[in-house]
Structure formats: C-alpha cells, structure tokens
Design a protein around this nucleic acid. Structure first.
Length: 418
DNA sequence: TCTGGGGTCCTAGGACCC
DNA sequence: TCTGGGGTCCTAGGACCC
C-alpha cells in the first residue's frame, strides 16, 4: 500500500501580506501585517468590499467579503489599501517556483493555495516530512518575505484543514489518528464545504461540532442534505480520496466574465454594449484555450440585488466574439424585466475542442471570416495590449471596450495561471 | 454612493420520447 | 376511463470554494 503524504500550503493573508512586503521593500516603515489593515476594492466603482485582512483586523470582527462601509464602522482606524493584482500574480509565481524544487506533483488550488504530493519521495528526502516542510516554510519567508502555513496529512482534505490551524508561519499535521483530538472539537462551520447554509441546517439538527457531524447517522444527513450530507459526513470522518492533479491537466468547464457597473443601467442599448465588452474577454479566453462552446448564458443583477439568468444550448459550437455577444444580447432581451441593472455577466460552457468545429450551412455570418477577424484582433491585443484595437461602437461611449474581471488595466488574467 | 469576480457541482422541474 | 412511467435533455437557481 502506498504511503501517501500531502502538503497543503496556504499563504497567510495572501493579498495583504504581498502588499505589506512590497511596501516594506519600497521604503515603507509600517508593516501592514502588524496593524488593522485590509486590501479593499474601489467604492466609487461600487467594488467596495474587503478582499483580504491582516490578522490584527480579525478581532474587530471584520470579515472578507463584507463592505468597506461596514468594515469602517467596526474599526475606525482601519487602513485600507487598493489591490494590485499584477503584484499578486508575481508573488504567486515566485512561490510556485520554490515548490517545484521539491516535487513535480503540485495542484495550484488558487492564487495562494497549493497541494503538494510527496508520495514516493522518501528515497529523495527520507521520511521526515516535517523537516521538508520547515525548509520550504523558511525559504519562502527568507527569500520572498511572506509567511505560509503548511498542513500535512495523507489526504488533501486533512492537509487543508491542518493548514488552517493556528496562523501565521506554522506547520501542523492532521493524521487520521489525530482527527479526534484536533478536528472533532472544531465548529462544524470550520469544515471544508460547510458554508453558511449547510451550517444552519446542521445546527437545526443539533450538530454543532465536526465531531457531532462525524458521529451522526449518514442516512439522516442524506435525508436532510442530499448528496452534500454524505460528502460532509465523509469529510468530518477524514475521508477523502481525491488526487493531487497537476493543474494544467484539469479541463476547463466554463469561462465567464461579469462586472458590477459603476452606475445602474436602464437602457437596452447600454446593456448591449456592456454585454459586447464582456464577450470580448470571454471570446478571447475561449479561443486561447482552443475551445468552442455549446452554451451561452447571461446573468443580470438588478439594483435590488436579485440575480437571474438565461441560457441557451446552441446547435453549433461557437468561439467568435460576435456570435457570443449576439447570443448573449438575445438572451438578455428575452429575460430582462426592465429594472435598473447593477451587474451583467456573460458565461460560456459545455466546451469542446475547436478542431471539432462544424460550420452550419445555414449560418448567417461567414464563420470563417469571423474566425480570421478574431484571430487577427487577438494577436494584436496580445502584442500591443487590450486597448490597441477597439470596436467603433465604444469610441464615443463611456463603456470600456473590454470589461470585467480584474482588467482595470492590462493585468494578466487571474485564471490564466491556474 | 454598503454589498466583487472567478469558478465547480448539484437539484428540481418541465419537455419530450418511447 | 381516477390512474403509466422510465429515461434523457434543457434550463434556472442555489450552495460552495478561493
């Protein structure tokens, strides 16, 4: 039997730490990590939420994702700094480079979290995994200036739970024989995949700790929570057999782009412009992944914060920006209830490799011509930036020609590294 | 100007077919 | 003349993660 060993490595307060390190390196005296501080979005453009927080911020009850308005009420001396996504990409890449020196089996779970599989490396490193973890942790701290937590176990779930134990700059193990002491006393909401809704349901059943969950009859959980009940029951018992998958082997399931608009849109024509600008990025990423899509969907958030959507399966897979935008606009017209719009999104799914692309004889547009145009535009934008070539409809418009994501400027796309 | 953006997976209901 | 019912596909919405 294989002796599986998994590390889960998590950057402590990632965005905030990276911001703090950058500022220290550029002459700032204050280390943001030592004071109540957060990375926060832009309130003027209605992106004002907490993206990351320092550890001293926690005792004020400020939570990631809440509005800056609320965060300020909780702590009046709070330091708020804007995000710098290009910096975070660089930090993430530098971290990944260090990991690669220790094992090729790495799954980048997000910009600041990775699973490392050390199974079968005992001939290289011996069995002393704590020592390897210490070397990695200290190298990151000394060479890159920020700290990580490392969780060690023999599956991904337990490693991930372990890395969430006391922070920062710590290594924890959570092997099966430690579950009862280290994991079962925790609140059930601390378990991976137990969010707010699941936690509420579990508490109504009298399940308050992970241990309570582990010792509940799985049939009861299945009755109340369907398949998700069995999933979290397995997790509570430390059971997980998912593999560390090298990320570039994971097939992308869908590509989406959405944006909260800095004003409420109440005209169809304006909405269509935003949908086109969102489709530009979706189309470009779809083509870059060498895929076509079979499903296009549009999502609307109105000014009452109600979300609704409409999707369509297409008879022919597409990858052209124009066709994606056309479809999305048609769906928008079918579903929009006429109220002021806060946010719009375009999403494509059911991807298939574009070599299987079949041109319908009945399509109105000359698909091959569209393909050539998209290809030319993509290569110009790749070379000279996203603003180098712009659809004329945007010229005398306050709608940006490419919209959504983090693309305030020409930042690399978040997901392109994953 | 209180409430972002990128994903994955699951479920329920209706249409449709045999 | 009370009444089928399994299977698949499509769509809308929600829960969860970072």
């Amino acid at each position: 039997m294989r002796n599986t060993v998994i590390f889960h490595i998590d950057v402590n307060s990632a965005y905030l730490s990276w911001e703090a390190v950058y500022r220290l390196q550029h002459g700032d005296q204050l280390d943001l990590r030592t004071v109540p501080s957060i990375v926060g979005g832009n309130q003027e453009s209605r992106h004002g939420i907490v993206l990351a927080k320092s550890i001293p911020t926690k005792k004020y009850g400020i939570k990631t994702g809440e509005s800056l308005f609320e965060a300020r009420l909780k702590c009046k001396d709070l330091i708020i700094v804007p995000p710098r996504y290009d910096l975070y990409m660089q930090a993430s890449s530098a971290l990944h480079k260090i990991f690669q020196e220790y094992t090729p089996q790495i799954q980048r779970f997000s910009v600041d979290e990775s699973f490392l599989d050390f199974t079968g490396t005992h001939k290289l490193y011996g069995e002393n995994y704590l020592e390897i973890a210490n070397v990695i942790k200290d190298r990151v701290k000394n060479e890159l200036g920020f700290t990580v937590n490392i969780g060690i176990s023999n599956n991904k779930l337990l490693a991930k739970v372990a890395s969430d134990f006391q922070k920062p700059d710590n290594i924890h193990t959570l092997f099966p024989w430690e579950i009862k002491d280290k994991m079962w006393p925790l609140n059930v909401g601390d378990l991976f995949m137990v969010g707010k809704s699941t936690e509420n349901k579990l508490r109504k059943l009298g399940i308050n700790t992970i241990g309570d969950l582990a010792n509940t009859d799985p049939d009861v959980l299945k009755y109340h929570l369907k398949s998700h009940g069995l999933l979290v029951w397995n997790y509570a018992n430390g059971k997980d057999n998912s593999e560390v998958r090298k990320s570039n082997h994971i097939a992308m399931k869908g590509i989406g782009n959405s944006t909260t608009i800095h004003f409420d849109v109440d005209e169809r024509a304006t909405a269509h412009k935003f949908i086109l600008s969102l489709s530009e990025m979706v189309g470009m990423r779809l083509r870059a992944s060498e895929n076509c899509c079979k499903v296009v969907s549009v999502t609307i958030r109105n000014n009452q914060f109600h979300n609704y959507s409409r999707q369509n399966k297409l008879s022919n897979p597409i990858d052209s920006t124009k066709l994606i935008a056309q479809t999305a606009c048609r769906l928008f017209d079918e579903v929009w209830r006429g109220e002021p719009i806060r946010k719009l999104g375009v999403h494509v799914s059911e991807l298939c490799h574009n070599e299987y692309y079949q041109v319908s004889l009945f399509e109105k547009d000359d698909v091959n011509k569209l393909k050539l145009i998209d290809k030319a535009v993509d290569s110009i934008r790749l070379k000279h930036g996203s603003k180098s070539i712009v659809r004329s409809v945007f010229i005398h418009s306050d709608v940006r020609p490419m919209n959504g994501g983090i693309g305030e400027e020409d930042y690399p796309m978040m997901t392109s590294i994953l």
